[in-house]
């Protein structure tokens, strides 16, 4: 269980990105965070694994206070929290294999990893992760030789190396062709069905309806909605996204 309590983030330049946000995520949920760009979705996700230090409030994970964790404890915690990024964040000049192996860095000692020495079991694990996302044949390619959708699969394979209990996905499909969105989200859905809790920010409402078990909406850093996907009707939609907003669909090919 993940508890977010009174989370507030004020950036050094004075921007209030999150204002007193509180909610709870049960194990096994697929929680989707929606909101306009700039509403604080990325900030919220990064406050959970403390890539960004929250200004106030706390994050509890199975009772452990992440916000209070020492640097060493934090690294221990982080290795069970996978993260998938909008820009994939793979090292373009490194091989796919190296990118995937780097997901294991929280488990191995610094010395051998700096020398690039990986155990056989880690290599096998990496190959299995690549097989799961269907790009095992690309293991030796440089990451920049892959398409966007394939790079995001490398990102997911890297997350799998962590044996995560929780995955934070920050707009994982926003940089991809709409038709590719489902192929990526279905991997997350599959992992969720295997028991991994997923927190995912999304833009398109049809994707929210299709994948979310529960939804949270942010507006200017404030939580303005929490509930089931089907509860987001036309009026709620206008409230979250503003009067001008039109609903756009990610794709019409639901099952691609």
């Amino acid at each position: 269980m993940l508890q977010i309590e009174h989370l507030t983030k004020v950036y050094p330049n004075g921007t209030v990105a999150l204002k007193d946000v509180t909610f709870t995520v049960q194990d096994g949920e697929f929680l989707v965070i929606i909101g306009l760009s700039g509403s604080g979705k990325s900030t919220l996700l990064r406050c959970i694994n403390r890539l960004i230090e929250p200004t106030e409030g706390r994050v509890l994970w199975d009772g452990a206070n992440i916000t209070r964790a020492s640097p060493a404890e934090l690294r221990q915690l982080r290795r069970h929290v996978g993260m998938v990024f909008q820009q994939f964040n793979v090292v373009k000049r490194s091989s796919v294999m190296t990118n995937v192996l780097s997901g294991r860095l929280g488990y191995v000692n610094s010395f051998s990893s700096v020398l690039g020495l990986w155990s056989k079991s880690d290599r096998e694990r990496a190959l299995k992760a690549l097989e799961r996302v269907g790009i095992a044949d690309k293991a030796d390619n440089r990451a920049d030789a892959l398409s966007g959708g394939q790079q995001q699969r490398v990102g997911i394979a890297r997350t799998l190396m962590q044996e995560p209990k929780l995955i934070l996905a920050d707009e994982p499909v926003a940089s991809l062709d709409p038709v590719l969105s489902h192929s990526i989200l279905r991997y997350l859905e599959q992992l969720n069905k295997e028991g991994i809790t997923v927190l995912c920010s999304l833009h398109f409402l049809d994707l929210v309806h299709r994948y979310a078990t529960r939804v949270i909406a942010l507006k200017e850093g404030v939580k303005v909605f929490e509930g089931l996907p089907k509860e987001i009707d036309r009026a709620k939609f206008k409230e979250i996204y503003g009067e001008e907003a039109q609903e756009v669909r990610a794709t019409t090919v639901e099952e691609g």
Binding site: L51, R75, R78, N89, R158, Q162
Partner: peptide, 11 residues
């Protein structure tokens, strides 16, 4: 981005 990713996995 990659720096953030390595921090996120506990590196």
């Amino acid at each position: 981005g990659p720096l953030e990713a390595i921090r996120a996995v506990g590196g």
